[in-house]
Every structure is written in structure tokens, then in C-alpha cells.
């Protein structure tokens, strides 16, 4: 793995710009997709951005019986092959952090793919709470 997605929760203001950037970066058929990242409040007015942690021994990859989830060795992201996915919801149920999601508008399973190596959320984050860095 050459890159790492870094989250610095103390800088997050909960402005939800990342959510918007993500939804538009994953738009299909002129419709925004479901955001793969959420700033969630752990205390009133205190937020942390919650997104896929791209686990090394990922439960979503193990749970997929159809090999639809695979790791992209360049970006380090676990990517979903939509052609192989049959929406059995195994990954959604198995992810210990709840970061594989069902997009009911587009009717498909979605998860963070690090935008193929240039995450829109990190680009647009105004406080740099999100960053994609070379390691």
C-alpha cells in the first residue's frame, strides 16, 4: 500500500462538505449517490467523520460469497465490483463498523473506494480533517 487515508477528528466541524462531495463524486444517471462518509456527532456539536477503514483482514471481503469485493493494491481501497454483486447484504451485515451501505435510490451496495486514488471528500474538506497521504 502506497497511500493512506487519514482522518483527524479534532479538526472536523461537522460541515458535511465531505458528504456532499462524496454523493456528487459517485453520481450516476444524473442522480447523486449515497454518501460513503458521514460526520457523526459523538457529543452535541462535536463531530467525527465516519468512513470505511479499509481493514487489512476485511470482514466485508470475507463475507462476500461471490468475490465482488477486492482490494485495489495501488490505492489500498477495498473496491466493489458492481457486475458481480447481487445485493445479498452479507457485507452490510458483516462490516464491524457499518461502513458498507445500501443505496436505496440507485439500488446497489456502496462502500468507500477512495475515488480510485483521489478522494473527493479529502479534496473538499475545508479544515483538512480528511487527507490522503503518501506513506
Amino acid at each position: 500500500m502506497k497511500f493512506r487515508f487519514e482522518v483527524n477528528p479534532s479538526l472536523c466541524t461537522g460541515c458535511r462538505t465531505c458528504e456532499l462531495a462524496c454523493a456528487f463524486a459517485h453520481a450516476q444517471n444524473q442522480k447523486p449517490g449515497r454518501s460513503r462518509i458521514y460526520p457523526l456527532a459523538y457529543e452535541p456539536d462535536k463531530y467525527v467523520p465516519v468512513a470505511c477503514l479499509q481493514c487489512d483482514d476485511a470482514a466485508c471481503v470475507k463475507s462476500c460469497m461471490f468475490d465482488a469485493l477486492k482490494r485495489n493494491e495501488v490505492t489500498g481501497a477495498v473496491e466493489l465490483d458492481r457486475e458481480r454483486c447481487i445485493k445479498c447484504m452479507a457485507c452490510v451485515a458483516a462490516c464491524p463498523f457499518g461502513c458498507a451501505l445500501l443505496d436505496d435510490v440507485q439500488d446497489e451496495i456502496v462502500k468507500c473506494d477512495l475515488c480510485g486514488g483521489n478522494p473527493a471528500c479529502a479534496t473538499f474538506c475545508p479544515t483538512k480533517a480528511l487527507a490522503y497521504k503518501k506513506i
Partner: peptide, 28 residues
């Protein structure tokens, strides 16, 4: 078949995300 811990399946994805936010908040 895939050796996934049983506790992963006990909670829904929304609650697991809230739990993750709470844990990250504690660390902060």
C-alpha cells in the same frame, strides 16, 4: 464458512457507525 466473529452480525450498520463515532470521540 468464512470465520467471521458472531458479534459483527448482532448490530445493524447504522448502530455500528454510531458506535464507531463514539469510540473515535473517546480517543479525541
Amino acid at each position: 464458512k468464512r470465520n467471521i466473529p458472531r458479534e459483527y452480525f448482532e448490530i445493524c450498520d447504522n448502530c455500528k457507525r454510531s458506535e464507531l463515532a463514539r469510540k473515535m470521540g473517546e480517543i479525541v
